[in-house]
Structure formats: structure tokens, C-alpha cells
Simulated scan of single mutants.
Amino acid sequence: MAILKSVLRFKGKLEGMNAYLPKNRDEADGYILRKNGGPSAKKIAKLPSCEPIRRNNDEFGTCSSAGKSVRMAISPVKHLADMNLAPQFTSLCRHLLMQDNMNKVGSRTVYFSDFGHMMSGFSLNKNHLFDSVVRHPLSATLDHDTVTAVIRIPALQPGVNLVLPWQQPMYRFIISLGAAGYYLHQQPPVSFITPWHTSQQAMEAATVTLQLSNGKINNNECMVVAVGVEMGTMVSDTVVERVKYTGCGKILIAG
């Protein structure tokens, strides 16, 4: 390992060397310079000693694909996230994959139908959690026979059980129902959006019923209900525009 302190500083790979600045390290302390190492992709693909690496790579691909299916299932709400959901859902699906005790390492899969319920309550935010904004919990029930979800929104009073930390004049709720499984043959989610309310306006209790358009889910799929609060601003007397980088959401229930 070497430390690069010259005037010419760079990040990335160059002539077999890799330069980078570790987290929490000041540039004045210099970049870390290492020689690229490890087996090549060709060796990883063929050497018997790299079999564990190949198995781990296969499982990472499985988790990545499963995570993509979850992102697609909640696509009407995912824009409310304040973090990169790809690695978050890949990590979440890794936990689901670890529940597979029937297959060997490298052949394990994500059984959404059996373990998808573990995704319930997953937050899409780090800065403002949905449960800290909506302090009277929503409830939902799933009917797998009719692939229907019934979501109940309680009566909400701003400043009491609805605490909006964003300085925007309007808010509304978005609710979605999707199916997580194999994204290559994944059916599109359905959603419901409430009317806009002023930030000081109470919202009456409501019941929302959503049904997947295909009328069924496959054996290794699960239903996923996501909910979010979206903020808006007045463009004219009749037009409200969504404000980017505000709002929050969560996976309300999965199973």
C-alpha cells in the first residue's frame, strides 16, 4: 500500500493501480494507492478453488433480481425514498434467501410466498420515517384468493397524529399494491391517490380497496402494499405540483 500526496491526484484504476480516498479520510492525508489484485474473471469462472466465489456470485444475482422485483412492486411509491433502494432491497432479499434451508449455498432462492411477510414495515427513508409522520398507524388485510388488499386510513389531524416536517402547503397519500416475485414476468402494480389537502386540513378516515389486474399471483410471489405521503405546492388556483425530495413511505404489509 502507498499513499499518494502529489499534486496529481486521481480516483480509480490506472495502469494496474487503484487510487481511492477512504471514508472519513481528509484529502490532505493523501489517497490510498494499491496494486490491483485477486484472480481474474476467467480464473474465477474455471478454477475449482473459486467455486465458493461462483456460488456467492450466483446468490448475489438472485438477491439482486429479487430486489428489483420488490422495487417494481412498489414503483408508485418508491420516488418518496431518500436513499438508494437497490442495495437496500438486495440486502433485504439476502435475509429472505438465508431462510431457504432446502437448497445448498449457490442454489438457494428467495421464496417470497413463504417469507415475503418479513418485508412488512420496511421504511423507504432515513431522515423522516413514515411512522414519525403518520402517528396513527394504517392497517391493511390481504386476500390471496381475490388478490385484493383493503387499506384503512384513520382520521388524521395535522399537528396531532399527522406531523408534517416539510414546509409545503399541500399533502396527499399514495397507496400501491403489487406482486413481488420474478420480475421478468411481473404484473404491474395498481395504486390509489387521495385528493390534495392543505397542510392544516384534517383528513377523514377512509378505506381503500385495490386489486391486481391479473386476478392472481404465481406460486412464488407475494402481495406488497406500500404507502406514502407526498407533498405539493400550488401552481395555480386549480393545479398542485408535487415537490421533489419531500415525503416519505414504507411497505405497509407484504405476504
Rank of each mutant, 00 (worst) to 15 (best):
C50Y: 11
T238M: 11
M72L: 15
L80Y: 08
G121V: 13
L21S: 03
M223Y: 04
V160W: 09
S213M: 10
M223N: 03
I253P: 09
V133M: 10
H185W: 08
Q211P: 04
G247T: 09
S139M: 03
A226T: 09
L85S: 07
Q200I: 12
N220P: 07
E221A: 04
L164T: 01
R135L: 08
R152D: 10
D26V: 11
N36I: 15
N214K: 15
V240F: 02
G116T: 05
Q187R: 10
P22E: 04
T146Y: 01
P76A: 04
M17P: 06
L212R: 08
V70L: 05
N84C: 11
S113I: 05
K46L: 08
Y183T: 11
N125H: 04
T246I: 03
I153L: 11
I74G: 03
L14M: 11
V105W: 12
D29W: 06
L138Y: 13
N127L: 09
T148E: 04
A205M: 09
K5T: 07
L156M: 02
D237N: 15
P48V: 05
L164A: 03
D26I: 06
F60W: 03
S199V: 15
F173M: 03
V134L: 09
R55Y: 10
C248P: 01
P22T: 14
K11L: 13
L138K: 01
A45Q: 07
Q187K: 11
L252A: 05
D100N: 10
R54G: 02
K244I: 08
Y245M: 13
G249H: 12
V235Y: 06
L4M: 10
N214F: 14
L47I: 09
F115R: 00
P188A: 13
L177I: 03
Y245G: 05
G181S: 08
L252V: 07
D143Q: 05
P39D: 05
P188C: 06
N220C: 10
K68S: 08
A73Y: 04
R242I: 15
K23P: 04
G121E: 05
N56L: 12
P195G: 09
S139A: 07
T62M: 06
N127Q: 15
C63D: 01
N220I: 14
M203E: 01
M119H: 04
A205F: 00
G181A: 07
W166K: 02
L129V: 01
A45Y: 11
A19G: 01
G181R: 04
P165Y: 06
H197C: 09
L85P: 06
K5F: 02
S213N: 14
